[in-house]
């Protein structure tokens, strides 16, 4: 952090800038709080669930919310609140693993496309466009037919469908930087490619990429929940938000609570990560901020 009393023209530090942006941004604060709650409960899930999420008959069947069961119980008397918390752990695991994979591969492919020869760039763009033209869920279902439904299939599907998006952004940024004057100057001075990549290209590319990834978390979670809802992702009895919703859908005419309970976290996650992503964008890249 920069000390304001030292140096002639102090740049506001990251923390100061964050606080200033957040102080005028209520939704940003809500976003950070929601994300902290969700990530925290996902990490602590095994210790904070009131009941075993797979234990049946913890109370009456399809009970409405009560003091004993905050979100009610499902068709075989499992505690929905416990299942929702445990499902959050699965959702966060999928998001973290698949986005990390997609970011690393996308970064690598984007750099190759941006710095490599023209024909390779064109070929890769073509493959990216082809991959993007599959609807995520439909492509996911095709993959499930080949390798069977599991948590790892979901991660693979998300990773494959997200790579083109990240790779394209890295490519565009790399291309723009490739001809920037300071890069040309460095090259003229005989600086090697590794140094150019790690000192100049990566730091410029990483920021927008991470912000985008945080805004993609809701999409990943919707894909996981969606595939699990169709019975093509996480398999029962493992509690996933999609599995909870599917159980709820089957008994929707008997009790609305499983559907309501299973959908609340999905909505909160989406709001949380979207708001947080927007706030992060304002903090790190004020230029991107849209004039209202």
């Amino acid at each position: 952090m920069t000390d304001a009393t030292q140096g002639p023209l102090p740049e506001p530090g990251l923390l100061a800038r964050s606080l200033r942006v957040l102080s005028g941004n209520r939704t940003g604060v809500i976003g950070f709080v929601l994300v902290a709650l969700i990530v925290g409960s996902a990490i602590l899930a095994p210790w904070i669930v009131p009941y075993d999420p797979t234990a049946i008959m913890t109370g009456p069947r399809m009970a409405p919310p009560s003091a004993a069961h905050w979100l009610g119980t499902d068709n075989i008397g499992r505690d929905i609140f416990s299942r929702v918390i445990a499902g959050g752990r699965i959702a966060m695991l999928v998001a973290a693993a698949s986005l990390t994979a997609a970011l690393s591969v996308g970064l690598l492919l984007g750099l190759i496309a941006g710095l490599g020869p023209r024909w390779l760039d064109n070929l890769m763009l073509l493959v990216f466009d082809a991959l993007r033209s599959f609807p995520t869920i439909v492509f996911g279902l095709a993959v499930v037919t080949i390798i069977g439904p599991s948590l790892y299939t979901v991660m693979l599907v998300v990773a494959i469908t997200s790579v083109p998006i990240y790779a394209r952004i890295v490519r565009t940024q790399t291309l723009a930087l490739k001809n920037a004057e300071f890069i040309l100057a460095e090259r003229a001075m005989g600086v090697g490619l590794p140094r150019l990549l790690f000192v100049h290209v990566l730091p410029n590319v990483l920021g927008p990429l991470l912000i985008l990834a945080s805004m993609d978390v809701p999409l990943v979670i919707a894909t996981e929940a969606g595939l699990s809802f169709l019975g093509m992702g996480v398999r029962p009895p493992t509690p996933s938000w999609g599995v909870i919703l599917n159980d709820g859908y089957n008994f929707i005419r008997n009790s609305p609570w499983p559907v309501i309970g299973g959908s609340i976290p999905i909505i909160l996650v989406t709001l949380g990560f979207t708001f947080m992503g927007e706030a992060l964008r304002d903090i790190f890249d004020p230029k991107l901020r849209k004039a209202g």
Binding site: G226, F229, L245, G248, I266, T270, L271
Partner: peptide
Amino acid sequence: ISIPSFVMALY
């Protein structure tokens, strides 16, 4: 925007 379509369908 924040509600996935299948949740919307369920509601």
